[in-house]
Write a protein that binds this DNA or RNA. Sequence first.
DNA 1: CCATCTTTGTGCACGCGTTCACAAAGACAT
DNA 2: ATGTCTTTGTGAACGCGTGCACAAAGATGG
Lengths: 261, 261
Amino acid sequence: MATGRTHRPATRSRGIPEATVARLPLYLRALTALSERSVPTVSSEELATAAGVNSAKLRKDFSYLGSYGTRGVGYDVEYLVYQISRELGLTQDWPVVIVGIGNLGAALANYGGFASRGFRVAALIDADPAQTGKMVAGLPVRHTDELEDIVEHNQVSIGVIATPAGAAQEVCDRLVAAGVTSILNFAPTVLSVPDGVDVRKVDLSIELQILAFHEQRKAGEDLGEAVAAARDTLPKAVAEPVTEPARRPGPDGDVPAVMPA
Amino acid sequence: MATGRTHRPATRSRGIPEATVARLPLYLRALTALSERSVPTVSSEELATAAGVNSAKLRKDFSYLGSYGTRGVGYDVEYLVYQISRELGLTQDWPVVIVGIGNLGAALANYGGFASRGFRVAALIDADPAQTGKMVAGLPVRHTDELEDIVEHNQVSIGVIATPAGAAQEVCDRLVAAGVTSILNFAPTVLSVPDGVDVRKVDLSIELQILAFHEQRKAGEDLGEAVAAARDTLPKAVAEPVTEPARRPGPDGDVPAVMPA
DNA sequence: CCATCTTTGTGCACGCGTTCACAAAGACAT
DNA sequence: ATGTCTTTGTGAACGCGTGCACAAAGATGG
Ligand SMILES: NC(=O)c1ccc[n+]([C@@H]2O[C@H](COP(=O)([O-])OP(=O)(O)OC[C@H]3O[C@@H](n4cnc5c(N)ncnc54)[C@H](O)[C@@H]3O)[C@@H](O)[C@H]2O)c1
Ligand SMILES: NC(=O)c1ccc[n+]([C@@H]2O[C@H](COP(=O)([O-])OP(=O)(O)OC[C@H]3O[C@@H](n4cnc5c(N)ncnc54)[C@H](O)[C@@H]3O)[C@@H](O)[C@H]2O)c1
């Protein structure tokens, strides 16, 4: 998930496993829904179903937080909502800046799911002078020149990058230098950051490619494994059908037609 | 990652590990950049750095695809681009539909990264009659009534859901019934799908919450562990101040403002 | 043709995450 | 109070993913 140095060794003694942390928001969402329906308690089985996970996994996850359940009954919904919120740090307000107010950045700014969990959009930042001053989601777009001031003045520790890939590393460096220590990156680039800074990335293109992989697998299965299997086990030299691009890269490094930039 | 039944047991004999599949697009991106610079070959060390991973991991990943490197030299960039593309199923065209053309859906439709990897947006679909017919990213928005026709006629096997959470499961069901077998879900809901259908989800809110967790950790470390440790080890019964959840869930199922610990 | 040097491919060990399965804890009825 | 019944919390086994470390492969130079 995280790209840069997100190495989290056995530093944290009473550490909650990363996999568990990633599921806590899922549980929280399910619990919030139950809370809104005024459901007082819930069993691990029910909650697990609602969150789309295995009940044993859910119980083990909760066991890292402490013993918050009652045997024979289940978990108190309100109490658990509070405990998970506290563990995730949602009992406090997190100011966030979004850098790059284009198609995606504007959509993010308009997204209601931000504020609903204690994430407050402190500022929208863009380098394009034409954008500067425009109102997006009730906030004025501010110029990149102000980035450092904004971050420091609002005590921003979380930054969202929605600029083109080419600008991402530079924006990242400036955010980090200004004091941001957590970055959510939507640009398709590997960001390098110093130790102590967390980076998480969201990459639509990668998700689609993973889906395509499985999709191809399914299609292959349907029309018999034989073809795929035969091709796959062919020795390297022969594995290429004649229709394939010349294995030796021509004088001009040509990319296969189907795979443009 | 995937939500619904994405259980991929030891079915596939010569199966590529899921973790490896998830990294292939990363390698591909780095290789494409090298290709554009007409770099002929690359070592595992260089490529690993560019992709932001460990070189041993990269070599092991490639070993699942076959032996495509040359010892003492490295990997042929063009050849590797082709092999990974083929493995990921990118040598063919994947028609995609986007359902829910609001803030996010429109941004996705405008995203150039779609077409650049062989993913063709076949149609944009929305339930709002006011949206229908509007042009977004050069395509007309079509009404949900046409969903089944569109999917079947265009042989769409990948669907993107960007509707509000409440509509996501229904849209999902219709997509699946119409023949879609891979879904990328942006709505914050757990989708349930039949076996054989892959679901991947992208949830901004979850990403932010994970960042907040680590952010809280970092902050806690700085001002000494003592406070956090003391609070955490409080017996369960006492951990609950009297001021706490008598909490009838208000109209907003929100988090408590500030909990005295 | 041989020596040297570079880089791959992988055997192995280790740690994390998942799942099973069950003892113990507690609610609830009698 | 006692027994029954439900559900938690967790020990233990297992499988997957990661990273080390090195032998083998092949390029390159003499
Ligand atoms: N639109 C999507 O659905 C989508 C999906 C996945 C990934 N992405 C990625 O997200 C990023 C943004 O996509 P988009 O469609 O919104 O692009 P866009 O071109 O619409 O918006 C980019 C914005 O960033 C601003 N910008 C450029 N350089 C900047 C800098 N140095 N500092 C501050 N702002 C700067 C531009 O002025 C522009 O407003 C891209 O990297 C894209 O690959 C987009
Ligand atoms: N905007 C973001 O940055 C963002 C980020 C994360 C998640 N999300 C999620 O993505 C989804 C869309 O977000 P948004 O900001 O674009 O919302 P939006 O309200 O702007 O757009 C939703 C669109 O879906 C359409 N729609 C509603 N019901 C439909 C149905 N049954 N069939 C087809 N179309 C239907 C609506 O007409 C509307 O155009 C939401 O679930 C949101 O939680 C959005």
